[in-house]
Simulated assay, not measured.
Amino acid sequence: MNSVALIAAADAVSGNIATVGYGLAVIGPGIGLGILIGKTIEGMARQPEVSGQLRTTMFIGIGFVEVLGLLGLITGFIFS
């Protein structure tokens, strides 16, 4: 293998590993959303009379979790 091909292969592989890390950081809020929504539905099934309050609290929690996910995604674009 000549040196030009080796350098071209190294350039194709090189990149910023932080971009992968920030992309993986979005998985955490996704798991958090699944737990949050699942537990809210479970609470609504157990006590239907407080479903309005649970739904309101769930939407506030979803807003916070989504902000964290978007922050992790945008941070990857800013620092790369």
Rank of each mutant, 00 (worst) to 15 (best):
M1F: 04
M1H: 05
A5K: 07
L6I: 08
L6G: 02
L6M: 07
L6T: 05
I7Y: 11
A9H: 00
A9I: 09
A9Q: 07
A9F: 00
V13D: 04
S14A: 12
S14V: 11
S14G: 03
S14H: 04
G15F: 00
G15M: 05
N16T: 07
N16S: 05
A18Q: 03
T19N: 03
T19L: 09
V20C: 07
V20S: 04
G21L: 10
G21Y: 01
G21C: 04
Y22H: 06
Y22P: 00
G23W: 03
A25E: 10
V26G: 07
I27P: 02
G28H: 00
P29V: 08
I31S: 06
G32F: 00
L33D: 02
G34Q: 08
G34C: 08
G34L: 10
I35Y: 13
L36H: 03
I37T: 11
I37W: 09
G38M: 11
I41D: 12
E42I: 06
G43E: 14
M44N: 11
A45H: 10
A45K: 07
R46E: 13
R46T: 14
Q47K: 12
P48C: 11
V50R: 01
V50H: 07
S51T: 13
S51D: 07
G52Q: 12
G52H: 10
Q53P: 02
Q53L: 14
Q53R: 09
L54R: 09
L54Q: 11
L54F: 06
L54S: 12
R55P: 03
T56Q: 15
T57E: 13
T57Y: 03
M58S: 13
I60W: 12
I60A: 07
I60N: 12
G61V: 07
I62Q: 09
I62E: 01
G63E: 10
G63V: 15
V65K: 01
E66H: 12
E66I: 15
V67R: 02
V67I: 15
L68F: 09
G69H: 02
L70V: 15
L70I: 15
L71Y: 02
L71G: 09
G72Q: 09
G72V: 11
G72W: 01
G72K: 01
L73M: 06
L73W: 05
L73C: 09
I78L: 13
I78V: 14
F79K: 03
S80W: 10
